[in-house]
Design a protein around this nucleic acid. Structure first.
Length: 279
DNA sequence: GCCCTTTCCTGGAAGC
DNA sequence: TGCTTCCAGGAAAGGG
């Protein structure tokens, strides 16, 4: 599941592999629903001979500035991957969109579960402005965070997964951040004290930075798992404290990690360390 | 406007 | 062993 650290890793890999400055000669769409907002034919026509000027990340989106004012927004969702392959290499059945580049390589969008989406648009802000702040940017302060959460009545976990509140968090890093901050995922936001909000702010930044340093989290071995654009597995799974560690001892107190469902999401907690209070 | 539920999909695990 | 069923999960749309 690509979240902020995984997308950051992919973008870093793509930039390092010299994607910026390359020209897309042709795009081939093998699963039309992977392309959002226009027909595959329009997508192909508008991308032909476009130069990839810049690549960056915003939340969980990969943003490529291509020529003529167009922007490619790529969301990997559950199982999406991007990687390079020589043009002659046969297509895997799960490759949904393939971009032919001017240097003999192809950039392939591989997505077993077909949740991923690619949007070609002149107005990227229509999508991107809905996103909350970037949690690792300097301008995102503990005060901003507290203000965004304090007025909410919902449970912590669904709110942190909401990309409009804060961009880039997904199931893995939310569970890890809540453990780090010793907060129960079902706690109502409005009941948090100022020190608790501050602890959560720091925890979110800590687990995301750790994830980026480890080049992301790769769970299991199947091809639907996370692999960077250069085909590397992440190493952050070894450092996870609670996520998918049901029954294992809590690294802080030794109590068994429990699994519960919060907002229809599998959720991992230490019931000793993460007091439930009002739940 | 906020919160909650449903929908999209497939591979792999679990159940029989 | 081999078949069937169930589940995970991000974002957006729809309902209350």
């Amino acid at each position: 599941m690509p979240e902020l650290p995984e997308v950051e890793t992919v973008v870093g890999d793509l930039a390092e592999s010299g994607l910026e400055g390359r020209t897309i000669l042709r795009a081939r769409v093998y699963w039309p629903r992977s392309v959002e907002g226009m027909t595959p034919a329009a997508f192909r026509d508008r991308l032909r001979n476009r130069r990839i000027e810049r690549i960056r990340r915003r939340g969980k989106y990969i943003v490529m500035v291509v020529g003529g004012g167009w922007h490619l927004l790529i969301h990997l969702r559950m199982s999406g991957r991007l990687f390079f392959a020589p043009r002659a290499e046969p297509r895997d059945e799960h490759e949904r969109v393939v971009f032919e580049l001017d240097d003999g390589r192809t950039l392939r969008f591989h997505d077993t579960r077909k949740f991923g989406r690619i949007t070609l648009t002149m107005r990227p802000q229509e999508k991107l402005r809905r996103l909350g702040p970037e949690p690792l940017e300097r301008e995102f302060t503990a005060r901003d965070f507290a203000q965004r959460l304090a007025c909410r009545k919902g449970m912590l976990k669904p709110l942190l997964l909401n990309q409009q509140i804060i961009a880039g968090l997904g199931n893995i890093y939310v569970d890890e951040a809540l453990f780090e901050a010793r907060l129960h995922p079902k706690r109502r936001c409005s009941t948090l004290t100022a020190p608790e909000l501050h602890a959560l702010y720091r925890a979110i930044r800590k687990v995301l930075r750790r994830g980026i340093r480890a080049s992301g989290t790769t769970l299991g071995a199947g091809q639907a798992n996370f692999y960077s654009a250069s085909g590397r597995r992440g190493r952050n799974q070894d450092g996870l404290k609670v996520f998918r560690r049901t029954g294992e001892p809590c690294p802080r107190c030794g109590a068994p990690i429990a699994r519960l469902v919060v907002g229809q999401r599998g959720t991992h907690v230490c019931r000793e360390c993460q007091a439930s209070h009002d739940t």
